[in-house]
Write a protein that binds this DNA or RNA. Structure first.
Lengths: 123, 123
DNA sequence: TTGCTAGATCGATCGTCATCAATTCAGGCC
DNA sequence: GGCCTGAATTGATGACGATCGATCTAGCAA
């Protein structure tokens, strides 16, 4: 057995019991399961090279926005695939989608990247 | 065809030609493929709930370090799985591994999370 | 030496994800 | 109305990743 465990055996088992309300009963600093899943979902959106490039291109685009037709080229991916990635970024709250006429314009959600960065600090 | 493209057709095709040296010939601000892959790899390490909890637990642990036996319990995972996740975090430069006697102690690499956070700002 | 324990590695399995071709939807134009 | 174009959705496929049981390695103690 472990030598340490300075009196925190209470935190030991926080798992299968089907999503126990939520965490932090009092002296439990570490992330609970639900929090961790939510935050991981956020990072999953950033865990793909093509999605990072999408964010980068949109950020650098003229007017801070770009339509899908401007994005398929640089990425070398098919239109459905790019649309798929854009949806993931929108669902993650990182991109904003605005349809004007035939075109769909994507732009960075202000402060979204900064907020994600803060998650790392408050782990 | 697209109406926009304010004179940046040069950036259009940067894809299949088998990893062209590297990016940014001059006026190409967006992430190149290689950069994107490297940065995505970083976020991949954070894109798992259990790894986030590992970081959280290690950070909150007494002395800022924890051995594997302290980590399998809270996560409800087998020892090989925890070891696997820890290796990924070490390879990503987020955790430091120190073997003392029988035990392996893991601690946060100072400034690693902050550096990852900065990547978001410099997309 | 033998035995024991903490941890890493290996192999297999199962689920998730990235990608594409085909289709569908929606907004302009004739 | 019918047609064209930009974009989203669907279905299938191949690759990657999380997990586990079994095995292997490294320290420590009889």
């Amino acid at each position: 057995m472990c030598v340490h465990n300075g009196g925190m055996t209470a935190v030991q088992i926080v798992e299968s019991p089907a999503a126990d309300a939520c965490c932090a009963p009092a002296g439990a600093p570490p992330l609970c399961t639900e929090e961790a899943v939510a935050k991981a979902q956020h990072f999953k959106a950033l865990a793909d090279p093509n999605r990072l490039r999408l964010l980068s291109i949109v950020k650098a685009a003229d007017g801070g926005e770009a339509c899908v037709c401007e994005l398929t080229g640089p990425l070398g991916l098919g239109q459905p695939t790019v649309s798929h990635h854009l949806k993931i970024l929108v669902d993650a709250g990182l991109l904003h989608r605005e349809k004007r006429g035939i075109w769909a314009y994507y732009s960075l959600v202000p402060g979204a990247l900064e907020r994600t960065a803060e998650v790392l600090a408050t782990l």
